[in-house]
């Protein structure tokens, strides 16, 4: 029987300036909620700490700490002002 040791596969997408810091996408595992995820990303990419962004889990914006379902996608979107 196959046992998934690294459950909670999370695909993270970075937009705009954030992709210059963290790349366009990364896959993480073993993170249970968005607070843990953001903390993990801040450790991995310290420059993210200075950035403002909205967070969407499975394409829905979140405003409080949110549990990450298995095989979810998380998008980090910074504001754009140019016109």
């Amino acid at each position: 029987m196959l046992i998934m040791e690294n459950g909670k596969r999370i695909q993270v997408f970075f937009f705009g300036k954030l992709s210059e810091i963290a790349g366009a996408a990364t896959t993480l595992s073993n993170l249970h909620n968005t607070d843990e995820l953001i903390q993990h990303l801040h450790t991995q990419f310290p420059a993210l700490a200075n950035e403002k962004f909205a967070v969407a889990v499975n394409k829905q914006t979140i405003h409080t700490n949110t549990e990450l379902p298995d095989n979810c996608t998380v998008a980090l979107l910074p504001p754009f002002s140019g016109g």
């Binding site: 937009f15 705009g16 979107l77 910074p78 504001p79 754009f80 140019g82 016109g83």
Partner: peptide
């Protein structure tokens, strides 16, 4: 609403 930055837009 529309906004752009470098190669991306919203």
């Amino acid at each position: 609403f529309g906004a752009i930055a470098q190669y991306e837009g919203q």
